[in-house]
């Protein structure tokens, strides 16, 4: 029983960066943009967030810079795909190559200037990133460790998911956003400023991805800077959007399920089932591939991808 609880809470921790990435990509796709740059935006957020924390020791600055860096990546993407109508696939891929490269490059640049040849977050900041202890709640049996013993990021990600769920599906701006993603020409004719909506939501999504990167760099890796710190989580996040059926609230579940796959190896006793480590490391990717196949077999009209994802919009197209 306690193993199960540990597995679940471990899954939540492992799933949190995925959740951020998935939420960011959902916002992007709702605006009609398949952004394959999630990995890159997460890497940029990871680097900026970590370095801000490393230099200032402030959690708030970390979050701010992570968000801004992710949004900066998205800004490049938006400039190219919205204003200059470049191919979304290629632009997104390039953003990933660029973002991951830049993040590693700056990490290396910072490393050189340290004495110990390691970058570690200040102890005070590290403590703030530890699991919260909520008096009276965290000590509860079962529920305490299942619900009330996570770090700030976890609660932040859940809050963002719920807010996005309300924003996209129940607010006036969200309706306009969905219209832009489904049919920009219709949105335009209705007086919606298509370009502005696209930019704002691409940047918002990019910022959220950046937060996910920061989590990966600052919490998942134990407060020590590692090269390739996002390590493919961004790609899983893109695929998770399909699993979540473009619904931010469903994304919570999806991210934790995939979090579970990535930590499963610590919970399956070798005596019961002995599989090579490489298999467990590949497991999230194998499952993602399977999800892609299964969801394409069961394609349904409702909840499907926004209709104009991947297409540029030019008002005077004739």
């Amino acid at each position: 029983m306690s193993t199960l609880i540990r597995l679940i809470s471990h899954s939540v921790l492992a799933g949190t960066p995925l959740l951020f990435g998935t939420l960011g990509e959902i916002v992007n796709e709702k605006a009609g943009h398949l952004n394959l740059g999630v990995e890159g935006m997460m890497a940029m957020g990871a680097c900026a967030g970590f370095m801000a924390g490393y230099l200032s020791g402030s959690l708030l600055l970390s979050l701010l810079f992570a968000f801004l860096a992710g949004a900066l990546g998205a800004l490049i993407y938006a400039l190219l795909t919205v204003t200059l109508m470049a191919d979304q696939n290629v632009t997104g891929l390039t953003l990933t190559i660029f973002g991951v490269g830049l993040s590693n490059f700056i990490g290396q640049y910072m490393l050189v200037n340290t004495a110990t040849n390691t970058l570690k977050l200040p102890e005070a900041l590290n403590n703030r990133l530890k699991a919260l202890s909520i008096p009276g709640l965290s000590q509860l049996p079962v529920a305490g460790s299942l619900l009330f013993s996570y770090d700030l990021f976890v609660y932040l990600s859940i809050a963002i998911a719920l807010l996005l769920g309300w924003y996209i599906n129940h607010s006036h701006s969200g309706r306009n956003l969905r219209a832009v993603g489904e049919n920009p020409a219709a949105a335009d004719a209705a007086g919606i400023h298509v370009t502005r909506v696209k930019y704002l939501n691409l940047l918002l999504g990019g910022g959220i991805c950046g937060l996910g990167g920061a989590y990966a760099a600052m919490v998942s890796n134990g407060g020590v800077w590692l090269s390739d710190t996002v390590g493919g989580r961004g790609w899983i996040a893109v695929a998770l959007v399909i699993f979540a059926a473009w619904n931010p609230v469903r994304a919570i579940l999806g991210a934790y399920v995939f979090g579970a796959f990535s930590v499963l190896k610590y919970y399956v006793p070798k005596s019961v089932l002995s599989l090579p480590n490489a298999f467990y490391d590949a497991l999230p990717f194998i499952v993602t591939a399977l999800v892609l196949v299964i969801s394409s077999i069961l394609q349904k009209r409702k909840n499907a991808q926004p209709a104009s994802v991947g297409l540029s919009y030019y008002r005077e197209e004739r």
């Binding site: 991951v100 490269g101 590693n104 490059f105 990490g107 290396q108 640049y109 050189v112």
Partner: peptide, 9 residues
Amino acid sequence: NLSAEFAAV
């Protein structure tokens, strides 16, 4: 001592 990742950037 700069990262070779400059190429990627």
